[in-house]
């Protein structure tokens, strides 16, 4: 569609330090990453290394101390709907129904792009995309954790973002629900060709979903340790991949990085 290989999203020399009670810690240093349009990139690393911080900087929710983020060549430094976020803990507004949560985003973001009836249809379309039409009238506390994440994804997708940012979207879910949502996400990504950055702790999830896996070193002063390309054709089928040598090799590479070369330093209780 667009010019081939033109960098879509680029993280340039990102560094950030936090000062808490007079002590300054450098959390990220020299994070550089270029992402193409439609690419699915996952970010993996040990807890506390700074994955959420990277994502929040791209989202514009945090300001980098050094460096910056370019989206289609333009610097971004405030949050906006073209970089929609699926939050780790779903972050649905509890006083709104499922449909109203999606509608809040659609009515605000697509106000000038779509007429009112078009927006109504678009809301329903996105609810259907994540199979949540049946529970559209329910409030967040009335639906399961997996359903909440689905609504969070629908809300983000409904903004027609250039980049979809997901912070451990399936982290809090049981294995079965997680597998089901992963399949749904792959299907959606195949259809919409969004650019996605997803944080995960799950090596299988990273390999199954990603075009590239970005592995981060441990903090403080964390940075990108290695980037692994996953050359598996799409659509990918989880059952067929179990035996696939490319899959097992990629999986082994990530495990090796995380547990041999950058093992988590002993966690102080």
């Amino acid at each position: 569609m667009t010019t081939l290989n033109a960098t879509h999203l680029s993280l340039e020399q990102i560094g950030i330090s936090f000062t808490r009670s007079g002590r300054t810690t450098e959390v990220l240093r020299d994070v550089n990453l270029k992402i193409d349009k439609g690419e699915f990139v996952s970010l993996i690393g040990h807890s506390g290394c700074g994955k959420s911080t990277v994502l929040n900087i791209v989202a514009g929710l945090l300001k980098a101390s050094t460096g910056g983020v370019l989206l289609d060549g333009k610097e971004v430094n405030s949050p906006g709907p073209e970089r929609a976020v699926v939050f780790q803990n779903h972050s649905l507004l509890p006083w709104l129904t499922v449909r109203e949560n999606v509608a809040l985003a659609v009515d605000k973001v697509l106000k000038s792009k779509k007429s009112k009836p078009e927006r109504r249809d678009w809301i329903e379309h996105n609810l259907a995309l994540v199979n949540m039409t049946h529970a559209a009238e329910k409030r967040p506390h009335e639906i399961s954790g997996g359903m909440k994440q689905r609504v969070g994804i629908a809300r983000a997708l409904a903004m027609e973002p250039k980049v979809l940012l997901m912070d451990e979207p399936f982290g809090a879910l049981d294995a079965l629900t997680r597998a089901h949502l992963q399949d749904q996400l792959m299907e959606i990504h195949l259809r919409l060709k969004n650019t996605v950055i997803m944080i995960t702790h799950d090596v299988d999830e990273a390999v199954l979903l990603s075009d590239r896996i970005v592995m981060m070193t441990n903090g403080p002063s964390a940075t990108i340790g290695e980037v692994l390309t996953v050359p598996l054709a799409r659509p990918r089928k989880r059952l067929e991949l179990v035996e696939d040598p490319t899959y097992t090799h990629a999986r082994a590479e990530v495990l090796e990085f995380l547990y041999a070369r950058h093992a988590k330093p002993a966690i102080a209780a």
């Binding site: 929710l61 405030s78 507004l93």
Partner: peptide, 12 residues
Amino acid sequence: QDYRNVAAVLRL
């Protein structure tokens, strides 16, 4: 903070 983040992303 989550609700504030949602509002920020939506640019309310």
